[in-house]
Simulated assay, not measured.
Amino acid sequence: MTRRGTAPPHPATELRIGATMALPAALRSLGANPAEVLAGAGFDLSLFDDPENRISYAARSRLLAHCVDSTGCQHLGLLVGQQADLHSLGLMGLLVKYSPDVGMALRSLVRFLHLHVRGAVAHLELDGDLAMLRYDIYQSGTVATDQIGDGAVAAMFNILRTLCGPDWKPTEVRFAHREPEDVRPFRGFFGAPLLFDSALNAVVFPADWLNHPLPGADPELRRSLQAQIDALEAEYGDDLPGQVRRVLRTALLMDQARSDQVAKLFSIHSRTLSRRLNACGTSFQELLDEGRFEIARQLLADTRMEVHQIAETLDYADASAFTRAFRRWSGSTPGQWRKNHKAARLRGK
């Protein structure tokens, strides 16, 4: 299922519509006609007939932006995401569900998320007695990143609640965008401390929950599911630049983005990584700059973080070094880009 008038997207840019299946219902709850709103963006309502239908990540982001503009609802992504759960993930959701414990379930989610969505990456990070499940967007040209992030965080919250049970509570929920004018929908749904203007979208919770056994664990069924997922992974494949892009988003935010550090993740030497990327028509530095530029634009557009804070997040020596790089990428300073972006958004309303 594709947008009218466009060629089918390459598999490397697609995602299952599953996690966005609640969009028509969310539009109805806001008093809008889903068919009319979707048609205004060039999409058919039938796209949502089957969770296995696919759409490009960029097209999905433009659709969400259009729906927000049409309804005026600034928490539409949250409304959609709070209806998503393991069932939204299809085959991968079953693999997660039948894992032996929460830790293994989340590691499977992180490992195979690319079969569900191409354009973002999940990461499970441990810090002392806390665990953090993150969702990072790496697809360039993505709009409505605040809505996508809200939906992803809500979905991760639901998945964790399903795996851990009603006694589970997050320590903190983080959003990579500024605090909305009306924060009540967020407080009502999450019931936990909220941190806006963060560099990342994440759910933070006590790490002890990773050892929590899952009552539905079924080793035999899980082996069967794993075999099916392995077959899917072999069918989809991935070029090396695509794999590096997924890794770099998380690596940049963890200050682990040197070429030797990234090469180690692929069990190869940095020279081998460089040679293989060159054979694909790109370079590690180009992908690194692309990742930094994408993160910088998201943080400038969606948060109130100061330029020096963004520079620190991206591991620049100081704000001036970041500003020089950003001017090279975009032709303007970060401050001017933010001002122009804000003006463009206001004109679009």
Rank of each mutant, 00 (worst) to 15 (best):
246 R>G: 10
245 R>P: 03
209 W>S: 03
198 S>T: 01
175 F>H: 07
267 S>P: 00
233 E>F: 04
260 D>G: 02
181 E>P: 01
181 E>G: 15
277 L>C: 07
228 Q>I: 04
258 R>C: 01
243 Q>P: 00
178 R>A: 15
191 G>H: 11
254 M>A: 15
199 A>D: 08
259 S>H: 13
257 A>F: 06
239 D>Q: 08
281 G>N: 11
216 G>F: 10
186 F>A: 11
276 R>K: 14
273 L>T: 03
195 L>P: 02
252 L>H: 08
225 L>I: 13
268 I>T: 08
269 H>S: 11
276 R>W: 08
202 A>G: 05
208 D>W: 08
174 R>Q: 12
274 S>G: 15
218 D>R: 08
186 F>M: 11
192 A>L: 03
195 L>H: 14
209 W>C: 02
265 L>F: 05
270 S>G: 06
205 F>N: 06
217 A>W: 00
203 V>E: 04
189 F>K: 10
202 A>T: 02
272 T>I: 03
193 P>Q: 15
181 E>L: 15
248 L>A: 08
219 P>C: 02
274 S>P: 06
219 P>G: 04
274 S>K: 14
208 D>F: 09
243 Q>Y: 01
231 A>G: 02
236 Y>F: 02
179 E>L: 13
250 T>R: 14
238 D>N: 07
235 E>Q: 12
220 E>V: 09
268 I>M: 15
